[in-house]
């Protein structure tokens, strides 16, 4: 037999038609296809990023970050929107972490598996996909009208609480997934030492699940920080020429300000919108980096 034939250089049984050449070709085609998918995804994002940078970098300076909005494009800045967004995120993180993680712990660790928990599970999964404008309308009814004595109308608190509702399903689903990934042998080891369920969860299950929980929180907060529809409905203001002085202050937020500038006819404001996008992305990046650092810390400890 000629060893140069595509048989791998080894004697072949006639019952196996190896066709190595064809199999390697398919291998190469598949590798190219997956590479192309990656390249397209990255390419589109890079294009988006570059065009934003080109439009926005020119007007992005310290004065832009520290100024209030103005009718004159050259004097307009993003300070109140930046402050509003930061305060919103504080509210969202403060409420969504304990509520979301708490609900997930109850459903995963304490509740028995029955039709009720299964229905709740399906509902939460579906809620994660509901458009944010619907949550905005819910927030309008509940936080702006029903609890207006507490939230004082369209304030950072009511906006943040509405965003909390928006991301709660994401936090719950992500936390449940990471709790489920903790092996049962860890729980059994705890119980066999005479720990009760709370001690097992608090000392062993939750620390082991924490990296996954943090990842879920990052994704959820990233969704909240960029959400516009919810805040439009719950009354974020388009024009705020002052810094918010607390959680019961009227406010605007980065996506609202960007939306507002982008919808003006003048080209100068479009550049401001691009600068605003850069600021928003920087905030997002800082937030995610913090979360990744926290997550690595948890991973090292365990």
């Amino acid at each position: 037999m000629d060893v140069n034939e595509p048989t791998g250089g080894l004697e072949q049984s006639p019952e196996f038609v190896q066709d190595l050449e064809g199999r390697y070709r398919l291998d190469a085609i598949f590798e190219f296809a997956t590479w192309a998918a990656t390249a397209i995804a990255i390419g589109v994002l890079a294009w988006l990023l570059i065009s934003v940078l080109i439009d926005g970098l020119g007007t992005l300076d310290w004065q832009f970050i520290t100024s209030f909005p103005s009718r004159k494009a050259e004097r307009a800045g993003i300070l109140p929107a930046l402050q509003g967004t930061i305060l919103l995120m504080v509210v969202v993180a403060t409420f969504s972490f304990p509520l979301g993680v708490g609900a997930a712990i109850y459903l995963e660790e304490f509740a028995t598996d029955n039709w009720f928990t299964r229905v709740v599970e399906i509902l939460i999964g579906n809620l994660a996909g509901v458009p944010s404008i619907i949550y905005g309308l819910l927030g309008l009814t509940v936080f702006l009208r029903l609890f207006s004595d507490i939230t004082q109308g369209p304030t950072i608190l009511s906006g943040g609480l509405t965003l909390t509702l928006l991301i709660l399903p994401v936090v719950i689903v992500a936390t449940r997934e990471s709790l489920r990934a903790v092996p049962d042998s860890t729980r059994l080891a705890g119980f066999a030492l005479g720990a009760n369920r709370w001690q097992v969860v608090w000392s062993h299950v939750l620390p082991a699940a924490m990296p996954g929980v943090m990842t879920g929180m990052i994704l959820a907060l990233s969704r909240a920080i960029g959400d516009t529809a919810t805040l439009l409905v719950t009354g974020a203001a388009a024009f705020i020429p002052f810094s918010p002085d607390g959680f019961l202050s009227r406010y605007t937020a980065l996506p609202i300000q960007i939306y507002n500038w982008a919808s003006r006819p003048q080209a100068e404001f479009h550049n401001l919108a691009a600068s605003g996008i850069i600021v928003l992305m920087a905030v997002l990046l800082i937030m995610n980096t913090t979360a990744v650092v926290l997550r690595n810390k948890f991973q090292q400890r365990s």
């Binding site: 066999a192 030492l193 005479g194 000392s203 062993h204 082991a208 365990s302």
Partner: peptide
Amino acid sequence: VELRRRVGQVFQRPNPFPK
């Protein structure tokens, strides 16, 4: 919980806590 302190258990696969 008290019974399990008095009657301990070692499992099939070693399962130390990740600590």
